[in-house]
Design a protein around this nucleic acid. Structure first.
Lengths: 244, 244
DNA sequence: CAGTGGTCTAGACCACGCC
DNA sequence: GCGTGGTCTAGACCACTGG
């Protein structure tokens, strides 16, 4: 038994939402690790003291949030930040013709810095707080297509300076090295002209229209964990959005 | 009773999905009109011959698709293409500071035409087939911000020529005049330079970076019903995308 | 074959909206 | 007070996976 009150005892929130939150806490505190098989519905129902149907509703909601993966006949697994899922969930830039692929990365710069006004506001930290800043070029089919700057609050990423390299899939790095799971993100898109530096990095002329994507990425507790500004050439690719 | 086979009788699809499809058919054929109160779960369960729980799963799925609106204590209603919902679901351009609002429109041109190659491909009609083309300027707080061209297959919109005006909210027009419900859409975004015509219409300089949104809009049967290309000034607004 | 999640059912009670 | 959708429960059977 755990400490979840019965649904009507306090009249707060539906029982299945309370269950969901308590299970998310297990993801946050690392009780359940990415890739791990979690207990079956029946076991959880017994342990928590609610019916299997209520457990199911909580697990289904978490699956809809991409936190779990359910496989009939096998069990329920904690979702992992592997390439194909990240590609589908967080990377919306698609070649005009051809298959979606994960872009390669080449690091340009990578250093500690003090948060500028805009960064600090977006990351919800103090002006001038310590951050890590990563600048890289991403290529699709060898052609440079994105120049992006990633800003991370140093507090959430202790020991970052000890890294010998920054991998292509940084969300897997956040997960494995700091136990930080990126659960959602919001992106603001604008059209801007390429700066001289943009142009040099991307091999285009300065002033070329670029798609600027400003992403805030959130952890499981809805804290902003990463700020990322990507400037993209969209002559042979586009950003895909589905409205449902 | 209707003609839905029991779940295992033919072993095709889950019962609740068959129920969902049969209920969507009632939306397509107009048995249930936008805004209408549909029968209660209990009545539908009796009529169709399945349990209330199965009806509920079908209705919940349709609600998730924005086809229905459920209100505790009142009943379940067919969703209407009213401004606030359309604004939230299909209009993703937001002022950098301030509230989301529905943009005003001013029609520039509006005439029949023959589909060009790209239009025909996107609309899945023959090259040179008859279409209607609407060109308009949209303003946010009086300032021109979008120039857009809407292309409609003439076959799906008989009597279009009899219209005396094209309203701001065209999705409500499609629904009321032709019974066409827009259920989903997909958008491709690129950064482009403003043409001379764009610049004149938007009051910017030619070459100014614009966000170009190419939307395909689908009816309830997943047919492409509308093609829309919007070129947007993003100096004081941005396109908002949520990744979950 | 046993165990898992997926579906379907039936019935209870709660929260809300309206009369 | 009545009818609605929302939640919770309990139990049955099915479909898939793995040993």
């Amino acid at each position: 038994m755990t400490d979840i009150p019965q649904a009507r005892a306090f009249g707060f929130r539906p029982l299945y939402l309370q269950v969901k939150e308590s299970l998310i806490r297990r993801l946050i505190d690392g009780t359940w690790q990415p890739g791990q098989l979690i207990p079956s519905e029946m076991e959880l129902a017994r342990e928590i003291g609610v019916s299997q149907g209520t457990i199911r509703k909580a697990l289904d909601a978490m699956t809809a949030d991409n936190l779990l993966i359910r496989r009939q006949g096998r069990g329920t697994y904690v979702a992992e930040p592997e390439e194909s899922r990240i590609l589908f969930q967080f990377f919306r830039l698609v070649p005009d013709s051809g298959e979606r692929t994960f872009p390669d990365s080449r690091i340009l710069r990578w250093a500690g810095a003090k948060a500028e006004r805009a960064e600090a506001a977006a990351l919800a930290i103090a002006d001038g707080a310590d951050i890590w800043r990563i600048e890289r070029i991403r290529t699709l089919d060898k052609a440079p297509i994105i120049i992006e700057t990633i800003s991370l609050p140093a507090k959430r990423f202790p020991g970052f300076e000890a890294l010998t390299e920054v991998p292509n899939n940084v969300y897997r790095l956040y997960s494995q090295r700091w136990g930080i799971t990126i659960g959602s993100a919001s992106e603001k898109l604008k059209a801007v002209g390429a700066s001289v530096q943009d142009a040099r990095a991307l091999g285009c002329r300065s002033g070329t229209p670029l798609l600027e994507i400003s992403r805030k990425a959130f952890d499981l507790e809805q804290n902003v964990v990463e700020l990322r500004v990507s400037r993209c050439l969209t002559e042979e690719a586009h950003y895909l959005a589905d409205l449902r």
